[in-house]
């Protein structure tokens, strides 16, 4: 193989048909309230972890739906499981349990 001094960029586009959806499917089954999340960001606004790290539970909830799960294991470690997010959720999504279920799913499918 020839080295031309550059490599072919990886496509940033989410290829939904080939996305790894095992985590969202597991979480949706175990914690069905994820389906009614409005992705409003109230959880992230109040998040104890999110105020001091780049942890973003709203983003994680959305990202796993489209199979964007890179660094997920490291990301969810930042959650302190305090439950403030659940308190503010306008739709009663069990956000805290979503983190626990993501953790389970990672163990099942990615370890």
């Amino acid at each position: 193989m020839v080295d031309f001094g550059f490599s072919i960029n990886k496509d940033r586009q989410i290829d939904f048909d080939n996305a790894d959806r095992r985590i969202i499917e597991y979480v949706a089954k175990e914690e069905s309230t994820i389906a009614i999340c409005l992705i409003c960001g109230a959880c992230t606004a109040t998040c104890s972890a999110g105020n001091f790290t780049d942890f973003n539970i709203r983003k994680i909830t959305n990202m796993i739906r489209v199979g964007e799960i890179e660094n997920l294991k490291e990301e969810i470690k930042k959650c302190m499981l305090c439950g403030k997010c659940q308190l503010v959720c306008p739709r009663g999504v069990n956000t805290r349990n979503i983190i626990l279920k993501i953790n389970e799913a990672i163990k099942i499918f990615h370890e």
Partner: peptide, 12 residues
């Protein structure tokens, strides 16, 4: 040159 990976990815 460093950007050519982006160019070639489009063709690919």
């Amino acid at each position: 040159q460093a950007n050519r990976g982006y160019s070639i990815a489009c063709s690919k």
